[in-house]
């Protein structure tokens, strides 16, 4: 009964994954769509000799880690908030779910309009508050453009993580926290010594998923900046797309795709090791 499903998955994943290995080690003829020449690791070597590729590599890791860190911290705080009592809690619980329902392309359009140089609300608000003295061209600043995309990804990723943290918090005995409070522990030390050890086991697997998603981010970059200005918002994923489907440089693109996989695996394994160490320490 598993055969049809497994066969399709193998056809869509396994076969191309193996073909990509072959491609990454060849020179490719575009007219015949055939492998022309086997070049071994040449494509990989050339990538790593290029300073701009190394820049993309570093940026990709920074991009992923920033998204993971910001999403984790913010989601944790919002989950803490949602676990308390206040007016409008039910409304807020639905509201924090909504960004998940926004298709990534729409999110791209939406942030594009928010940060637009002439019609963007970000400019309008900051200008009215007197924080800027003239309208800024946000997305043409390399540094700001990258962080606008990070912001978009965090905004879209938050609902998923908030849900998990909230479920985790609700499964905790509430009196653990109260008891610590009555013992005179301040709010920070309560979070540090009571809550964090209980929440870390939930957080680490979520961080892995989050990082993998960040490595797959494409739509937002494509719609907002197309990797620019210059190459300021180019991540590995986008680079593979550009090399493969715009420049039709299939060999290097395939090699870069495997570098992306390696980056993902290295970070994921590192997080897993941290998880093990923390588990051994009883956290």
């Amino acid at each position: 009964m598993t055969i049809p499903a497994v066969a399709l998955v193998a056809g869509i994943y396994l076969y191309p994954a193996i073909r990509t290995v072959i491609l990454s080690m060849s020179e490719f003829d575009l007219v015949t769509l055939e492998v022309e020449r086997f070049v071994g690791f040449e494509n990989f070597i050339r990538l790593f000799q290029s300073p701009s590729f190394l820049e993309i590599l570093t940026r990709t890791v920074y991009f992923g880690l920033m998204i993971v860190a910001l999403t984790t911290v913010l989601a944790f705080l919002v989950a803490l908030l949602l676990n308390e009592r206040f007016i409008g809690r039910t409304v807020l619980r639905v509201a924090v779910l909504l960004p998940w329902a926004i298709p990534p392309v729409v999110a791209g359009v939406l942030f594009g309009q928010l940060f637009h140089a002439e019609i963007g609300f970000v400019n309008a608000i900051l200008f009215r508050l007197g924080l800027i003295d003239r309208y800024q061209v946000w997305l043409s600043d390399p540094n700001i453009a990258l962080h606008v995309i990070i912001m978009l990804e965090v905004w879209r990723a938050l609902p998923f993580m908030i849900l998990f943290f909230l479920a985790g918090l609700q499964s905790l005995p509430h009196d653990v926290f109260e008891a610590a409070a009555i013992d005179g522990a301040g709010i920070l030390s309560r979070i540090r010594h009571v809550l964090l050890p209980l929440v870390t086991p939930i957080a680490l697997p979520l961080m892995i998923i989050q990082f993998i998603w960040a490595m797959k981010a494409f739509d937002s970059i494509f719609v907002l900046t197309r990797g620019g200005p210059g190459r300021a918002t180019m991540t590995l994923n986008y680079y593979v797309y550009q090399q493969g489907f715009q420049n039709f440089d299939l060999g290097p693109a395939a090699a870069a795709a495997y570098v992306l996989l390696a980056v993902t695996l290295v970070v994921v394994v590192t997080i897993m090791i941290i998880q093990r160490i923390l588990a051994k320490r009883g956290l």
């Binding site: 998955v9 869509i12 994943y13 076969y15 191309p16 994954a17 073909r19 990509t20 491609l23 769509l33 998923i209 993998i212 490595m215 797959k216 494409f218 994923n237 593979v240 797309y241 493969g244 489907f245 299939l250 693109a253 395939a254 795709a257 495997y258 992306l260 996989l261 993902t264």
Partner: peptide, 20 residues
């Protein structure tokens, strides 16, 4: 684990196969 691999990894050979 397959679901977590970068999609772009599969795209080039699939594109060639689909065009053919």
């Amino acid at each position: 684990s397959i679901y977590f691999l970068p999609t772009i990894l599969f795209m080039i050979p699939l594109f060639i196969a689909f065009v053919n």
